[in-house]
């Protein structure tokens, strides 16, 4: 395998990881601060993508579409927090899973009712389309580079928010002792709604960014949701830093596994067999990674043990 191909695959892995981070950041914040398992996070990703596709179709502007995705997902997040999720904080995880699974069904069929059963069109803006040549002669799609950049910027902003601002202090305090922070006069329920809407907005942004290179359709969020859960388990539940490291680890493992494993098996097996063993093993690679991490560090890489 040439160095160029390998570098291109590393970039692909990084881009995939950064996208997973946008999903996982919201999920881990919500789980860390409120102790809530939110299966409907994938639906918020879908809401973001549909809002972006709809606004892009109506206005022709990708920037407006991105803003619409943030707004729509945050609004949907705040709405379900106020109406449904709020009643679940005190309940056990099984009730939360049941209720948020119901939300998935409601969002999916509601979206179908509003937009129909056929996938929507959302394209890369002309300014960002096509490949660019990087140093070393690597041709790489400009849009994917943009996703990497946006993702890393969001990560930096999120760290600053958590570490440097008053809201961030409250979020961290809420994570460690929610009764104490309520007793100190912080409006805890407003804080929860805010955190939930923030997580939802990040998921919506991921949906819109990815919707431009994938298909905007009902049910698009569920496969990403599973990966996002793997990411936060690896990174340690509740840790933003863990989510970032976990997401990039999962992105790289998945991408490189898909390339290297079939090539590895073809060294000593017939091509057909190597191909099928390699690709089967590649689809398990991230789960094997998760198992190994959990054996070594049961709380995840950056979790509280």
């Amino acid at each position: 395998m040439s160095l160029i191909l390998f570098t291109e695959q590393m970039l692909n892995g990084l881009q995939f990881g950064v996208m997973l981070f946008l999903m996982a950041a919201g999920l881990t914040l919500i789980f860390g601060v409120m102790g809530l398992i939110n299966l409907a996070h994938g639906s918020l990703y879908m809401v973001g993508a549909f809002a972006a596709a709809w606004v892009a179709g109506a206005s022709g502007s990708f920037l407006l579409a991105l803003m619409a995705s943030l707004a729509a997902a945050a609004a949907a997040g705040a709405l379900i927090e106020l109406t449904v999720i709020r009643r679940l904080y005190a309940r056990d995880h099984l009730d939360q899973v049941l209720a948020t699974f119901a939300l998935i069904l409601i969002f999916s069929e509601g979206t179908r009712w509003a937009f129909g059963s056929f996938p929507l069109f959302l394209d890369i803006p002309p300014l960002l389309s096509g490949p660019v040549t990087l140093p070393g002669g690597i041709e790489y799609p400009l849009y994917r580079l943009t996703i990497i950049l946006v993702g890393l910027t969001v990560a930096a902003a999120l760290f600053a928010l958590i570490a440097r601002t008053r809201i961030g202090i409250q979020i961290r305090a809420g994570e460690s002792d929610r009764e104490m922070i309520a007793a100190l006069g912080v409006n805890i329920s407003a804080l929860y709604t805010l955190v939930f809407a923030l997580g939802a907005a990040l998921a919506g942004l991921a949906g819109a960014l990815i919707g431009a290179i994938q298909s905007v359709q009902v049910g698009m969020g569920e496969p990403v949701l599973i990966l996002a859960f793997v990411v936060i388990v690896i990174g340690g539940i509740g840790s933003i830093k863990g989510a970032l490291v976990g997401a990039i680890l999962v992105g790289l493992t998945d991408t490189l596994g898909r390339i290297l494993l079939p090539a590895f098996f073809s060294q000593f097996m017939a091509p057909q067999a190597a191909n099928s063993v390699g690709s089967s093993l590649a689809s398990m690679a991230i789960y094997i990674l998760m198992a190994v991490v959990l054996v070594v560090r049961p709380g995840g890489l950056f979790g509280k043990a």
Partner: peptide, 20 residues
């Protein structure tokens, strides 16, 4: 000849292989 995952949505890795 590549078998991808069912339901896979990102094909960057495969496209890089096609290019090479």
């Amino acid at each position: 000849e590549i078998y991808t995952q069912l339901g896979q949505t990102d094909y960057a890795a495969e496209i890089a292989q096609i290019r090479a």
